[in-house]
């Protein structure tokens, strides 16, 4: 599937777009990517077009080319995703098995204290 094949490239392009923090056209991204891999202009163009269709990038026409820009920040996407992960694991069906779900601040303080007692003997 094309989506599968371009998955890595999509991530790499979004990574660049987020690091620029400003609009960029296909050529700029291409030149950046070419520093570590050989890649064709049309490939980058296709993938960026896909990212636009999927709602990751917005674009406006500047002269003869499109200027692309990330729709939202990486932090924004991450925060939303992590909130979702926590919410879904709470209803368990998603089976995003969490390392830890609940421990109140008081409990955690009490345990930290307990650990400090256990640790020194343990480190010997």
């Amino acid at each position: 599937m094309a989506g599968q094949r371009f998955g890595d490239l999509e991530a790499a392009i979004m990574d660049r777009m987020w690091s620029y923090g400003r609009p960029a056209n296909v050529r700029e991204v291409l030149e950046d990517l070419q520093q570590e891999r050989s890649i064709a202009y049309t490939t980058v163009m296709t993938v960026m077009d896909n990212l636009h269709k999927k709602g990751w990038l917005r674009r406006k026409r500047v002269g003869r080319a499109y200027e692309y820009e990330a729709v939202a920040s990486r932090e924004g996407y991450t925060a939303k995703l992590m909130r979702e992960a926590l919410a879904t694991s709470n209803n368990q069906a998603a089976a995003l098995v969490h390392f830890l779900s609940d421990l109140s601040p008081e409990e955690s303080e009490a345990f930290q204290a307990a650990l400090n007692v256990v640790r020194p003997r343990d480190d010997k």
Partner: peptide, 26 residues
């Protein structure tokens, strides 16, 4: 492992902590 549990759980802001108290973590 217990220390890791406490660290991960303890650093969580209240809004993120789910099902307060008496859960599996304890």
């Amino acid at each position: 492992l217990a220390a890791a549990l406490v660290t991960v759980a303890g650093g969580r802001t209240p809004a993120m902590a789910m099902g307060a108290g008496g859960g599996t973590a304890l």
